[in-house]
Design a protein around this nucleic acid. Structure first.
Lengths: 206, 206
DNA sequence: TAGATTGTTAATCGATTAACAATC
DNA sequence: TAGATTGTTAATCGATTAACAATC
């Protein structure tokens, strides 16, 4: 089955499966089952099997799944076998936290450039030898390096302009931390992280 | 229609509507329509009208919606008219970024306590006068203050233990930044923020 | 063999959309 | 009145689940 038929909602669950399986592997678990994984994730075993079935057959009847093997398959499906280079725009508190966060590079996402338009921040050296670049150089540097993923950590009122520049520079996936919905061409993917949105999804039930 | 019938997926969109409408209000827009809002958010106008219809009638035929009024209604529905107090566990880079982030308190979410179990961090003073407390005091302090929302910004291997403590302390909503699915009682809500999961949802399409 | 678990089918369940009467 | 837009219905579309043959 080819990619264009896979529902977004299925793709959205794969990283969560991968995360749990990678942890199982780390814990030395060699085999698991859709039932066990489902228990752990609060998802039905049928859903897990159905989701995986979009991509092939990865288990054995009566036995279950080899954890390491399934991790490898999910990494391949999600295209995270090798490292992705990312550009980060915004060198405020959040930008610094992201630049220092080992969890990104550990799992295959390396920030290779950081941009800001604040003269007071440009030139500052971050952990790992990154230097904050002038946002004016964004398009050129991103295009030259062929970076395809951007992280937007600027105030809401700059997020659209920044995103437009990223897209012009050739970025095709944007992780947007700014609290605003941005508009991009169809071929560009956007994911949103806004803690307030997540919090408001819970206060409704309190 | 009462709350227990509202689909989660509908509730999940309301904060996004609210965010866009609040911005419109800030920009001085007095009236909008489901069509305009849908355009801005990449959602069909029918879906917006249908979502809102779960909670009442907020618009006028031929005219649309009063932006300020709808903002107020959504705030009421989501229970974000008044400020929520939150506890933050983990005073690392991410914890600091969250504690400094004005976007939280601006939109009604105030961190009133920060905890860590690292002696080197306990006692440190953060912006806004917060002092990092010993995680051992977590349960007592949270319970005494009646805090209902917790943010977990600790390493993955501590997230479950921390969440258990929060739940014991009376927390009923957890925003989990640790890259692991946690297990909580049914009455506790959890939302997840893991940048790697979000990134992997996009790499599939690259 | 007996027990377990997959991959898949078909049925169920739920969400989205199109369309339109009501009405501002 | 004419034009616009809501709230709602019914139809369509899509996702989840239950069940089971296949098989390890």
């Amino acid at each position: 089955m080819s990619a264009y038929e896979i529902p977004d909602i299925v793709v959205g669950r794969l990283p969560v499966y991968l995360r749990a399986l990678a942890r199982m592997a780390q814990d030395g678990r060699e085999i698991t089952s859709s039932h066990e994984l489902g228990e752990r994730l609060g998802i039905s075993s049928a859903q897990i099997r159905k989701d995986l079935s979009h991509f092939g057959e990865f288990g054995k009847q009566g036995t279950g799944y080899q954890v390491k093997f399934l991790v490898g398959q999910l990494q391949r499906i999600l295209k995270v076998e090798t490292e992705w280079e990312m550009a980060l725009v915004g060198a405020g508190d959040l930008g610094h936290a992201l630049a220092h966060y080992n969890g990104l590079v550990n799992r295959g996402f390396r920030i290779v450039a950081v941009f800001d338009n604040d003269p007071a921040k440009i030139g500052a050296r971050l952990d790992g030898g990154l230097v904050v670049e002038d946002a004016a150089r964004m398009k050129d540097l991103i295009r030259r390096r062929g970076v395809k993923i951007g992280m937007v950590a600027v105030p809401a009122d700059q997020a659209q302009v920044v995103s437009d520049l990223l897209v012009e520079a050739g970025v095709r996936a944007i992780l947007n931390y700014a609290p605003i919905t941005i508009s991009v061409p169809d071929e560009v993917r956007v994911q949103y992280i806004d803690p307030v949105v997540h919090l408001q999804r819970m206060t409704f039930y309190l």
